[in-house]
Computed example of a mutant assay.
Amino acid sequence: MSKFEVSKDSKIFVAGHRGLVGSALVRRLRAGGYVNLLLRTRQELDLCDADAVHAYFRKERPDVVIDAAAKVGGIHANNTYPADFIRDNLLIQQNLIDGAYRAGCGKFVFLGSSCIYPKLAPQPMREEYLLSGPLEPTNEWYAVAKIAGIKMCQAYRRQYGFDAVSLMPTNLYGPGDNFNLENSHVLPALIRKFHEASLAGADEVVIWGTGAPRREFLHVDDMADATAFLMETYSDEAIVNVGTGEDVSIRELAELVGTAVGFKGALRFDSSKPDGTPRKLLDVSRLSDLGWKARIPLKEGIGSTYAWYLQHQDDYRG
């Protein structure tokens, strides 16, 4: 099949444009000279409603669809709402993939997650490790949905010649992140915890787990840049990992956040709480071979994310 050639005036629909990844994508695409972005809020277009999605795509005829829409959350949210996570994510991606294909879309970019890989996959995780072992139980509902999205993109490529590609980002963070302690990921949760502890003059911050698990973190602006790069240059059914190729322990991450916030107290790790996957580091050699590398160091990224949080912290009170 021939690769769809994206141009600066291509009509690009960014699903989930108000989220962490979607908003970064909009910034990156506009900075890159893309002038024809199609954007709809959840109130304007319910991505779980197949009829609404198909009707919108038939009307607008997007050239490119980027699926940055998903129901996401950390360990607590995945454990508490497993039905919501598998149902909503399956509906969103099915409606977008099938709707885009039927409307004659030229390119589809599906954004997955590193949680698709087995809990005990060899490290760093290569793309071919997909479906090679059991998933991490605390987020398997989300992971199964994302795996189904990958396979749907591959199936539509094989059967219909649909130029759909799948990108697997590592843990993302940055401006626009979710800092709600009930359902946020580890890095924004730590930023808020340390900030509030610092304001309160607390002696310590309690952190879930042992602090031993290792995680990789990619700034969302780097993710947006990689997505734009692959949208323009990549066309294959093979999935592509997107990350830095470097990781830190949760303890090291907490120390970095504490330093950025200026917290002077102690760290206490609550080992009665689950650690999740022992290590999650992506092998990014495929992406590197294609010509892209991350540019924002973790320390710098945490600092700028904390600065963003300070400007928006009123949104997370209560």
Rank of each mutant, 00 (worst) to 15 (best):
G301C: 09
Q311R: 15
K264G: 07
P188F: 04
A143E: 02
N89C: 12
K299C: 03
I97Y: 08
S184T: 15
G301Q: 08
E136M: 05
I86Q: 06
F229L: 01
L281G: 02
W292A: 05
I302E: 06
S184M: 02
L25A: 02
R58H: 08
C105F: 08
E127L: 07
G318N: 12
V6L: 07
I250M: 09
S271M: 03
D270E: 09
S184K: 07
A228I: 05
L253R: 07
N178K: 14
R28C: 10
R279Q: 14
K3D: 12
V35T: 15
R87Y: 13
D283V: 04
V109H: 13
D221E: 15
G19M: 04
D46F: 04
S288C: 10
D270K: 00
L20V: 07
I296E: 09
I75Q: 11
K151F: 06
E255T: 08
L199C: 11
Y306N: 04
P82H: 02
W208P: 05
L120I: 06
E136A: 13
P169L: 09
K264T: 15
R295A: 08
D270W: 00
L298M: 06
L167G: 13
G301K: 11
K107Y: 02
A145C: 03
K293V: 15
V6A: 08
P175H: 04
R27T: 14
L281Q: 13
V26N: 01
T138G: 07
V144M: 09
A197H: 05
E140F: 11
N95V: 11
P124K: 01
M1E: 12
A52D: 07
G276P: 10
L90M: 07
F108K: 12
P137G: 01
A189V: 00
E44H: 03
H76I: 10
K146W: 05
H185R: 14
G301V: 00
G106D: 10
E182H: 11
G22D: 11
V240H: 00
D315F: 12
T244D: 06
S288N: 15
G243P: 02
D315C: 05
G99A: 11
A83W: 13
N89M: 01
D221M: 01
A197I: 06
D314T: 15
K146E: 09
S166W: 00
K8N: 07
D46G: 02
G33N: 08
K119V: 09
R192N: 08
S166E: 11
V186H: 08
D225I: 03
R102T: 11
L190E: 01
I97Q: 10
H76V: 14
N36E: 12
E237W: 04
G73K: 07
F269E: 00
G32V: 06
L181K: 02
D51W: 00
E182I: 00
L190G: 02
D225H: 06
L45H: 04
R286Y: 07
E127C: 03
D203F: 01
D283F: 01
R28I: 05
G303E: 15
M168V: 14
T227P: 04
Y156Q: 10
E204Q: 13
P134A: 06
P134L: 08
L37T: 14
A50Q: 15
P82R: 12
D163N: 10
L172C: 12
L131Q: 14
N79F: 01
G303Q: 13
T170E: 04
L130Y: 13
F179M: 11
G211A: 05
G106P: 09
T210V: 04
P82K: 09
T227H: 01
G303M: 02
I116C: 14
L256R: 14
E5S: 12
